[in-house]
């Protein structure tokens, strides 16, 4: 998508927000922050109301048949857009790597074709900002110490690399602290978190230990699902460390009058 530059287009690009089911229901503020951030960057993002979910929770649990109508809904909702932005590495990964499996299973060539056409236009938030908009400094202000957890699907399924940390490093007032064993899984794993709760928590506790060792005020990641798990552990331990989505940080700006550093 190297030639995909919003500013170079005569007709502004039509960009849709795939807010994700978890943000829709549990973390609407993260969705609102994506909208606020993208508008600030000159993107008039739309929210296609027909959207529901990418289908990953079903696919990863083995209910691929059940994901077929969800995929149809997804394709119908987003087919007309030039780009789809989602604040989740996991959902973007599901679109790019699992939708082909689901449509193959459905035995529906038209669905397969439509979803294959759509998949490359679906971007995780940091990919969209860095690659499509070509922006690193989003003009954010966040005077706190931050540790960043690169979630597995962002890191390994999508390969977002250092895009999120570049964005964070450019935030005014933000101090990014190194997280040891950052690339290790947090232990969430979707239904793994309940089917194998003990193991999930054991993995998560090691992540929490590394987070606490950074001394950061805030743990940032690009996936609310992983943050629900890590944040749930941090809250249970009354650690005082907040978890925030990348969008929640990037949306912050210096308040009128300057704020404090």
């Amino acid at each position: 998508m190297d030639d995909f530059d919003v500013r170079g287009l005569v007709q502004p690009m039509r960009v849709a927000l795939q807010v994700t089911c978890i943000n829709d229901a549990l973390y609407p503020d993260t969705g609102r922050n994506v909208v606020r951030l993208l508008r600030r960057l000159g993107v008039d993002v739309e929210f296609p109301a027909a959207q529901t979910c990418c289908g990953q929770p079903m696919v990863n649990t083995g209910y691929i048949n059940e994901a077929v109508p969800v995929l149809r809904t997804f394709v119908d909702a987003f087919a007309g857009y030039d780009a789809v932005v989602t604040p989740s590495g996991s959902c973007a990964g599901s679109v790019r790597h699992q939708h082909a499996i689901v449509s193959a299973r459905a035995g529906d060539p038209l669905l397969a074709e439509r979803s294959a056409d759509l998949a490359p236009r679906v971007f995780e938030l940091s990919e969209f900002i860095v690659d499509v908009l070509g922006v690193i400094d989003v003009g954010a202000w966040f005077p706190h110490t931050v540790a960043y957890h690169p979630t597995c699907h962002s890191l390994r399924m999508l390969g977002v690399g250092d895009r999120p940390t570049k964005l964070l490093e450019a935030v005014e007032g933000l101090t990014l602290l190194p997280l040891s064993e950052a690339e290790e899984c947090c232990g969430f794993g979707g239904t793994f978190a309940v089917k194998n709760a003990g193991t999930s928590v054991a993995i998560g506790e090691d992540k929490v230990r590394n987070v606490l060792a950074t001394g950061a005020d805030v743990l940032v990641a690009g996936d609310r699902s992983c943050l629900t798990h890590i944040g749930g552990l941090l809250d249970r331990q009354r650690s005082g460390v907040r978890v925030m989505h990348l969008a929640d940080v990037l949306a912050q700006t210096r308040p009128p009058g300057g704020g404090r550093r």
Binding site: A25, Y27, P28, R32, F47, A49, A197, E205, R236
Partner: peptide, 29 residues
């Protein structure tokens, strides 16, 4: 799925006042 499997060691997030979709419908974003 068994909330106890989740909540034995982890807190659950608070439910928000309104969903994102409801907010968008109300405000147009």
């Amino acid at each position: 799925f068994g909330a106890s499997a989740w909540t034995r060691s982890r807190d659950l997030p608070e439910a928000p006042q309104e969903s994102f979709r409801k907010w968008w419908r109300r405000t147009g974003g």
